[in-house]
């Protein structure tokens, strides 16, 4: 069965499908969406799925949950280029590719403990995107450059 068919077979009634996740990152997606603490949500995870575009990829399907923009931005941090499909009543109502904005605000904190953004509650941490692949961002305040692992650990 090819991937297209498999995904069709396992259609969900309502929810979100996150496709084209870089292989090995599906569990990170679950972690940042805090899926494990929400027993009301049914989740299917497919890892090491063959993909024409990516070689191998991961796929996550979340039933009865539509992701908000802050969650989508978080996903963009770890799965730039991933495809999001929003499903209602078994039909696709929206499909788009997640993209990292040039300025990333409000979804992660600076990994530098001495950064002023970790000291003053009034300010929103903000980061400039330096490069998508490999992922690299720079804190607007302390200018610390962060790469994938540090970014993962800093997602709010």
């Amino acid at each position: 069965m090819n991937e297209e068919k498999m995904l069709k077979v396992e259609k969900i009634r309502r929810g979100t499908v996150i496709d084209h996740i870089p292989v090995g990152r599906a569990f990170k997606v679950l972690k940042i969406l805090r899926i494990s603490t929400d027993p009301g949500v049914t989740v299917s995870v497919a890892i090491h799925v063959k993909s024409k575009k990516m070689g191998l990829k991961d796929v996550v399907k979340i039933e009865d949950r539509i992701l908000d923009s802050s969650e989508l931005n978080k996903i963009a941090l770890i799965a730039e280029g991933g495809t999001i499909t929003i499903v209602e009543d078994y039909s696709v109502i929206k499909k788009f590719v997640v993209k990292l904005p040039d300025i990333i605000t409000g979804i992660l904190k600076c990994s530098n403990a001495r950064c002023v953004s970790n000291m003053e509650s009034a300010i929103k941490p903000s980061f400039t995107l330096l490069s998508k692949n490999p992922l690299s961002i720079k804190c607007h305040y302390c200018e610390r450059e962060m790469e994938t692992d540090e970014i993962m650990d800093s997602i709010l």
């Binding site: 530098n112 001495r114 950064c115 002023v116 003053e120 300010i123 305040y141 302390c142 200018e143």
Partner: peptide
Amino acid sequence: RHPSEGAARL
């Protein structure tokens, strides 16, 4: 002059 990095930007 401030001990926190990024204080001047703030």
